[in-house]
Computed example of a mutant assay.
Amino acid sequence: MTLKTKQQVAKLVGKKIRTLRLERGISLKHFEVMENAIDRHSLSNIERGLKTPSIYTLYKIARLLNVPPKEILSLLE
């Protein structure tokens, strides 16, 4: 297994989060107003791989998308 760079990980995680969000029909704006959500600008930066989410932020995103955090990270295996 090849170790991925921080930028590669950020892009893969962001792409997975965006895919899950869109599959559920949740807009960035709607996601922002959900209970305990992240503001849409931060989420947009995460989805584009410009920002790496903390473990807690990843946990919050997974809960809001109703998936286990390991589903978001599974693509890194």
Rank of each mutant, 00 (worst) to 15 (best):
R21W: 13
K11V: 13
K6Y: 05
G25Y: 00
R40S: 05
N66E: 15
N36A: 08
G14R: 06
P68H: 09
E47W: 02
V9G: 03
E23I: 04
L65A: 01
M34L: 14
L76V: 05
E35I: 10
S44E: 10
E71K: 10
A62G: 13
V9F: 05
D39F: 04
Q7M: 11
V9Y: 01
S42K: 14
N66G: 02
V67A: 01
L65V: 13
A10T: 12
R24G: 06
P53I: 03
I26F: 04
H30C: 07
N36Q: 07
N36W: 14
V67F: 15
M34A: 15
S44I: 07
K11P: 02
K51G: 00
R18K: 13
F31P: 01
G49K: 07
Q8H: 07
I46E: 00
S74W: 02
S27V: 09
T19I: 11
K51N: 14
T2Y: 02
K15H: 13
R40D: 00
S27A: 14
K6S: 11
L12N: 01
S42L: 15
V33M: 08
G49S: 12
I38S: 04
L3Y: 07
V33G: 07
V13H: 00
P69M: 08
V9T: 10
I55Q: 11
V13P: 01
R24M: 11
P69R: 01
Y56D: 13
E35W: 09
L50M: 15
G14K: 04
L64K: 12
I38T: 10
P69L: 01
E77C: 02
E47A: 04
M1D: 03
K70F: 07
I38R: 06
L76W: 15
I55E: 08
K29S: 11
K70C: 04
R40Q: 06
L12Y: 01
K11M: 11
K6F: 05
L73S: 03
R18Y: 13
Y59Q: 08
K60H: 14
Q7T: 12
K11I: 14
V33C: 08
V33E: 09
H30D: 15
R21S: 03
L73Q: 00
Q8L: 08
G49P: 04
L12F: 02
T2M: 03
E35L: 10
A10L: 11
G49Y: 07
S54F: 02
H30I: 14
M1A: 00
R24D: 13
V9C: 10
L58D: 03
L3Q: 12
